[in-house]
Design a protein around this nucleic acid. Structure first.
Lengths: 146, 146
DNA sequence: TTAGTTGCAAATCGTTTGCATCAAG
DNA sequence: CTTGATGCAAACGATTTGCAACTAA
C-alpha cells in the first residue's frame, strides 16, 4: 500500500469517513497521473474501466484529496481547473504555453523572499500565492518559424 | 472630451465600429469606477439611470475597452472576473484579502527582472504574467483579534 | 442498522451567443 | 439604406447539489 493510500486512510478515519471502492479507484488513477490534469481528464481515465463512476464523484473525491494534502488545484485563467500531486512535491510556480498548453514548473527562492518582504510592508498576512507567466514555449516558437 | 473617449473613438473608427449611446454611457460609468470591479457591479451602476441597458452589452463593451487598451481584466481564482483601468496605469501585481475582498496593488522591478531571467532560461517567450498573494489584510487581522 | 456515499439529473454561476429589432452613418 | 449594435432569453462550460438508492462499518 502506497504512502498516499495511508495518508488518505488516516484522513478519512479521523473524520469518520469511509474507504469506498470509488475512492480507492480514483486514488489509484490519481497516483498514475503526472503533471497537471483536469477533473474531466481524470474522470475519463477512471470511467474507461469503471463505467458506472460519475464525474460528480471525481469532483467530490478530488476535493477530499486536497483536504488530505494529496492534491493541489490551480485555476489558470478561466475555464477548467487543473490538479496536481501535492504530497512530496513542494511549492512552485508555473510557465504556461498558450499554444500547446504545456505547463512548466519553476522555483525561485529570491522571488519568494521578495514577496514576503512586500507582504510585510503592507502588513498583509499571506496564506497562499501564485506566480504565472503565460506565453509561447520554445517548442511552439520553433514550429511557428518553420 | 476625455482622452479615453478619444482613444475609444479612434479605436472604433479604425474598425468601422460605431459610437453608440450605450458605449458612451458605459464608458462614462467605467471612467468613474476606481479600483477593481466586476461586470455585474458596473452593470448595476449603469442600469440605475438607464434601465434598458442589458448586461450582455456591458460584457461586450468591456471586451471592446480591453481591445482598445482602456481596461484590463483579471481572474482571481474562480468566480467573477474583475476589471480595472489600464490607460495610464502600468503593470502591477496584487494582494487580495480573502476576508474583505480588498485588493491592493504593488510593483517590484526586481521580481520582474528575475521573472525575465527565468523565462529566458526556459526559452520561454512571455506575453503576460501575474503574481497574486492571497491572505488577510492588516485591517481584517486587527478585527479578528479584538 | 446507521450514517456516510454515490449516480443521476437538475441547478448554479458567470459569461457568451442567436436572433429579431433597432439605430448610426 | 446598409450594416453594425442591442436586448432578451436561451445556451454555455465547469462545477455543485438534492435526492433516493446504496453500502461500509
Amino acid at each position: 500500500m502506497s504512502k498516499e493510500n495511508l495518508i488518505l486512510k488516516n484522513f478519512l478515519a479521523e473524520r469518520n469517513l469511509r474507504i469506498t471502492s470509488r475512492r480507492t479507484i480514483i486514488l489509484e488513477a490519481f497516483l498514475k497521473e503526472e503533471g497537471h490534469f483536469s477533473a474531466e481528464e481524470l474522470y475519463k481515465k477512471v470511467a474507461k474501466n469503471n463505467s458506472s463512476i460519475g464525474i460528480a464523484t471525481v469532483y467530490r473525491t478530488l476535493k477530499l484529496f486536497q483536504e488530505a494534502g494529496l492534491a493541489r488545484m490551480s485555476q489558470f485563467g478561466k475555464g477548467e481547473a487543473r490538479y496536481e500531486h501535492n504530497y512530496l512535491h513542494g511549492h512552485h510556480d508555473h510557465l504556461i504555453c498558450k499554444q500547446c498548453g504545456k505547463i512548466m514548473e519553476f522555483e525561485n527562492p529570491v522571488i519568494e523572499k521578495l514577496q514576503k518582504q512586500i507582504a510585510k510592508k503592507h502588513n498583509f498576512n499571506v496564506t497562499s500565492h501564485r506566480l504565472e507567466m503565460f506565453g509561447i514555449c520554445a517548442n511552439c516558437v520553433s514550429k511557428q518559424v518553420s
